[in-house]
């Protein structure tokens, strides 16, 4: 994260209102399409309105669609979400296909995702499912009946191998190697 992201709204990856556990609710509540009837920059928007808008409204009855024609102003899409977010998007000179895709993005997202700084890429209410650690958590059951002090349980196996031990192991490996020379196939 750099300093320019400091102004973004921070957030976690969360579904609003446990969406989907009960029933799914489309989070886009209304969409306003602003366009000019004559300007060339609104060409794609006008095509979208002529060809796809009625189908869009039929498929998504839960989204209120408003059309706002304005003279000689650029085409704009404003999407409003159930969590109160508002996304303003200029679609100046965008083609019909591009606008269709952008509106699909607006329909399927759950809020103003583009200007949310994710604090983490994952989220959980329960960081641990095992509970807190105690000294007894992974205790060996054999320890319950062992007589202490006991060299088997008391040995310190956490130290790194000593140089003497390493040399001894190398020596023994060498001896083994000499013995098995006969077994090796000569090249």
């Amino acid at each position: 994260m750099s300093a320019k992201h400091m102004f973004l709204k921070p957030g976690f990856v969360r579904a609003p209102l446990q969406n989907g556990i009960g029933r799914y609710v489309c989070q886009l509540q209304r969409i306003v399409l602003k366009f000019c009837k004559s300007n060339g920059a609104s060409r794609g928007m006008r095509d979208f309105i002529e060809q796809d808008l009625v189908d869009f409204a039929k498929v998504n009855p839960g989204v209120v669609v408003y059309l706002k024609p304005r003279r000689h102003r650029g085409p704009v899409v404003v999407a409003e979400y159930l969590n109160g977010d508002r996304v303003w998007m200029s679609v100046h000179n965008k083609t019909h296909a591009e606008i269709t895709k952008w509106i699909e993005v607006l329909r399927t997202q759950q809020g103003n995702n583009a200007s949310t700084r994710l604090r983490k890429y994952q989220y959980t209410d329960h960081p641990s499912i095992q509970g807190p650690w105690t000294p007894f958590t992974h205790k060996l059951p054999e320890l319950n009946t062992a007589e202490l002090p006991n060299p088997a349980f008391g040995a310190n196996n956490r130290l790194p191998m000593s140089a003497t031990e390493q040399l001894r192991l190398m020596f023994e490996a060498q001896k083994l190697g000499e013995k098995s020379d006969d077994l090796k196939t000569a090249e």
């Binding site: 839960g62 989204v63 209120v64 706002k68």
Partner: peptide
């Protein structure tokens, strides 16, 4: 300006099915 209470109420019911 872009507000229609009737449409909003209809969409509210449709959204919740």
């Amino acid at each position: 300006l872009e507000w229609n209470l009737e449409a909003e109420l209809y969409a509210f019911a449709q959204r919740l099915n």
